[in-house]
């Protein structure tokens, strides 16, 4: 894509701004800010990736993955109840998932140990896991409100905190995974994934693009399940007071 074609994409921003003005939505400032931010962020990451691919040094791969996990933890943590230590646990769940998934992908030689594979695949895994973390915490928040009576009844009957919250956690894990599993069922029929579309637009063979997409879909479903389960285990005690084990 040449620079003129890239500049022409601003016509879409103009359409959105026009609709906002015409319908008095008051979103013009948000649209302009969003446009500038997305352009700057994407250009920045483009140059950064270009630099990393050129230098091909492992430290840069590690640094970029750490920064992805940090931003993802912060973002997903903002969906949770204000419980101390929640972001650290999200970061641990994401890091664990990323480590396991990447180790499998590399050891089974599904992808090559090069930044151009590791970084985009990691981004997609961490990104989808971040969404699952947010969903899990959101569902858990609702569970703790809706199932408070059930949990306290079990506690009153002498259940440990783990026994008392087990059903609520199970429901929250299941709910957090539904969008990922639904996405797997309809991929290719309802939506054409961004990565595959991008590869095809960039000139790759559609079959080759699909092979990579299958890899991503499977890796993301595994990492989503892993993240949700690991996060549920790491946060199990956070919902109870430290002093007397009551439900917070």
């Amino acid at each position: 894509m040449n620079n003129i074609a890239l500049a022409c994409t601003l016509v879409f921003v103009a359409i959105t701004t026009f609709i906002s003005m015409k319908q008095k939505l008051g979103l013009e400032k948000e649209i302009i800010t969003g446009t500038i931010r997305s352009a700057v962020q994407l250009l920045f990451i483009g140059f950064l990736l270009h630099f990393i691919f050129e230098t091909n040094h492992p430290i840069f791969i590690v640094l970029i993955i750490i920064s992805m996990i940090t931003v993802a933890s912060w973002n997903a943590g903002s969906r949770a109840m204000p419980v101390k230590g929640i972001r650290l646990r999200i970061a641990l769940a994401l890091a664990g998932t990323e480590a396991v998934t990447l180790a499998l992908l590399l050891s089974l030689r599904i992808i090559e140990a090069e930044p151009r594979y590791i970084i985009p695949v990691s981004g997609m895994i961490i990104g989808s896991s971040m969404i699952v973390c947010g969903l899990y915490l959101n569902h858990m928040k609702r569970e703790l409100e809706a199932s408070r009576g059930e949990i306290e009844t079990l506690l009153a009957l002498g259940a440990t905190t783990k026994q008392a919250i087990r059903q609520a956690v199970r429901r929250a894990v299941r709910s957090s995974l539904i969008p990922t599993l639904d996405g797997m069922k309809t991929v290719g029929l309802v939506q054409l994934p961004g990565m595959m579309t991008g590869m095809i637009v960039a000139g790759a063979d559609p079959i080759e693009a699909v092979r990579y997409q299958i890899l991503i879909v499977f890796a993301m479903s595994a990492s989503s399940s892993l993240t949700s389960i690991v996060l549920s285990m790491l946060t199990m005690r956070l919902w109870f007071a430290k002093d007397n084990g009551r439900l917070l």
Binding site: T153, L154, T160, T161, G245
Partner: peptide, 20 residues
């Protein structure tokens, strides 16, 4: 341990909650 305490000091709530 909180669960051991609660097995000795058992609370019966005014609004009974039945387990599923």
């Amino acid at each position: 341990k909180p669960e051991e305490w609660r097995r000795s000091v058992c609370y019966v709530a005014q609004t009974p909650i039945m387990l599923t």
